[in-house]
Simulated scan of single mutants.
Amino acid sequence: MIDVYSTATPNGHKVHIMLEECGLPYRVHHIDIGAGDQFKPDFLAISPNNKIPAIVDADGPDGKPISLFESGAILVYLASKVGKFLGNSDREKFNTLQWLMFQMGGVGPMLGQAHHFRIYAPEKIEYAINRYTNETRRLYGVIDKQVKKSGYLAGEEYTIADIATFPWLRSWKNQGIDWTEFPDAKRWFDEISERPAVQRGVEVLANLRKPLLDDKSRETLFGGTQYAKR
């Protein structure tokens, strides 16, 4: 049994989708990030960077429990555990990993900043909104070009690179995106949306998601509570 500590965010949904795709048994523990659950000692013990998601697999590689944080690392671990969604040859695996890193280093951080300055920031800063919206559009263009050429991000097969990237594009409207500019990315997005495991994965904890616009949530996520030394 895999214990998943998460909430209904793009990074959380990466792991929810992957677990559904892999068919692995798992148990979900909701981490209410607006309320500050991510700062509790028990969670920090498995996720020292106080970010979701994190997992504990009772049946680790050596038969002993293993805990992991960082969504990309979790995807690689689960793919290795089941022997799927990572590629078969070394060439395929490294190609998948480079597109996973594209998501981890580019898509997630930049789209996250677009979300912040377009939606959550208490003041509208035009420079920041334009910078991150433009970078978001550029990244959509990279995805559009790649999937037009190869079908999926890492080639002809669906991999953890697609699983990692897809949840971030679900908020395309909030990111200022017009799908008509990116028809191949839209085709890719719609195809992934139709996968039964994806549909199940994005529903995990979705009923517990709350708007993060109240003063307490803002302070917890973006204020002194987030930056306190632990």
Rank of each mutant, 00 (worst) to 15 (best):
D37N: 12
G34L: 08
K51A: 10
Y140M: 11
L221K: 07
G23C: 08
F85E: 00
E194F: 00
P167H: 12
T180A: 14
I143Y: 05
A164C: 08
I46N: 02
F222E: 07
E157K: 13
R209C: 08
Y127E: 13
E92H: 06
I177E: 03
S171K: 11
D162Q: 02
Y152I: 03
Y140T: 02
E126M: 10
R209Q: 14
G23I: 06
N130D: 14
L111C: 14
R118M: 13
W99A: 00
G23L: 10
L213R: 11
Q113E: 13
N11I: 07
R187S: 09
A35K: 15
Y127H: 14
N11H: 12
P183K: 04
M1T: 13
N130P: 00
I119W: 11
G106C: 12
Q146G: 04
S67K: 12
N88R: 13
K149R: 14
A128N: 06
K216R: 14
N134K: 13
C22F: 06
V198G: 02
R137Q: 14
G83A: 09
P53H: 04
I74D: 01
L97T: 03
F39D: 04
L208I: 00
F85L: 09
R230M: 10
Y158L: 08
G223T: 07
T220E: 09
S150T: 15
R131S: 08
F69G: 00
G12F: 04
V76N: 06
L221F: 09
Y227L: 10
Y158R: 01
N174S: 15
T96I: 00
K51F: 05
A79C: 03
T225A: 15
I33H: 01
I17S: 01
W172L: 05
R137K: 15
S67P: 04
S47P: 01
Q146D: 08
I125A: 08
R187T: 11
W188R: 02
S71P: 05
R91E: 15
C22A: 15
L111E: 14
E92I: 02
I143N: 06
G106A: 13
I160A: 01
K84E: 13
L100D: 03
Y120V: 10
R137F: 05
G23N: 09
G151S: 07
A128V: 06
T96D: 00
N174D: 15
